[in-house]
């Protein structure tokens, strides 16, 4: 049977679409392979738990991991409550009016602000104006504002996916609006909220530009003691090693990149597992 022109055309087009997909995704795989194969040669317990030595040309990256964890924790503390409450407002309280539209536009715009502009904003507001100085507090607040739109969007979706009947049942049993949200809606939206939060905060952990002027330290001989201290952070450390310090062994840089990517991928996996676990368990 002879193929019609249309079918031949389709075959050719589909081939090129497939090719485009490969062009995008093969480099992703190559990047990961390179990072893993070259980074794993330095990756050991000492690398993860030792302080940097000799002007960061050897030793470990312990303080940068600690700093990143502090920043992630701080970001969560500020962004999670505001994000969830904001999503509750949008999902349970807001009417379809101008205010809601403006809030939605604000969220879209927050999500689009360049990360380096967040850095400027954090510098202007938290570091200088509120006099927090370059500190974990200022950095966490800056990152929190940055991840807020993602947490709001994910939480709102999770809340709206809770069936309306749950709310009706709760009201019909004499519950108030807040009781209904707290006991009949929020518990069932939590897995979705959690997934979205983990994804957004893990991305925040990899950001460099927002922490450049708000918290990141080039090198600190000891771990931060309070939220008003500067901290080293994984992504900034990688920047420093690869562009600011001459003659750093490439393996050390790959190792740092591997730890950073590894942490983010692990967080993403955890989020995916939570999501699929609750999807399987979900009975509504």
């Amino acid at each position: 049977m002879k193929l019609g022109n249309a079918q031949v055309e389709q075959k050719i087009v589909f081939f090129f679409l497939f090719l485009s997909t490969l062009i995008i995704l093969i480099p992703v795989i190559l990047v990961l392979i390179v990072i893993i194969s070259r980074g794993s040669s330095v990756l050991n317990w000492a690398f993860l738990t030792a302080m940097p030595r000799m002007g960061m040309r050897s030793g470990g990256i312990f303080p940068t991991i600690v700093g990143t964890f502090y920043l992630v924790a701080g970001t969560l503390v500020f962004a999670l409550p505001i994000g969830i409450f904001s999503a509750i407002y949008l999902s349970e309280y807001s009417k379809r009016n101008l205010l809601t539209r403006i809030i939605e536009l604000a969220i879209v715009n927050l999500a689009g602000v360049p990360s380096v502009v967040y850095g400027l904003f954090g510098l202007g507001l938290f570091v200088v104006f509120l006099k927090f100085g370059a500190s974990i507090l200022a950095g966490s607040l800056t990152l929190a504002v940055m991840v807020l739109p993602v947490i709001i969007t994910a939480s709102r979706e999770a809340l709206q996916s809770v069936p309306r009947s749950f709310r009706e049942v709760s009201y019909s049993l004499g519950a108030t609006k807040w009781q209904t949200i707290r006991y009949a809606v929020l518990p069932h939206a939590l897995p979705g909220i959690l997934t979205g939060t983990i994804l957004s905060v893990s991305r925040a952990a990899g950001e460099t530009a927002p922490i450049l002027f708000t918290v990141a330290a080039f090198y600190l001989p000891r771990l931060p003691q309070s939220i008003f201290d500067q901290a080293m952070a994984l992504p900034y450390h990688l920047y420093v090693l690869s562009t600011q310090v001459p003659n750093v062994r490439l393996e050390l840089q790959y190792g740092t990149a591997l730890v950073l990517v590894g942490l983010i991928v692990i967080a993403n996996l955890v989020a995916v597992i939570i999501r699929s676990y609750f999807r399987a368990k979900k009975q509504w």
Binding site: I35, E207, P235, L250, Q253, I264
Partner: peptide, 24 residues
């Protein structure tokens, strides 16, 4: 699989891509 690949690309921090770009 492809969607996971795209998500993976989104998850790699800018600084890591910059570093890899710099050396490759």
């Amino acid at each position: 699989v492809l969607k996971a690949g795209v998500e993976l690309l989104a998850a790699i921090p800018s600084i890591v891509l910059g570093f890899i770009g710099l050396v490759t």
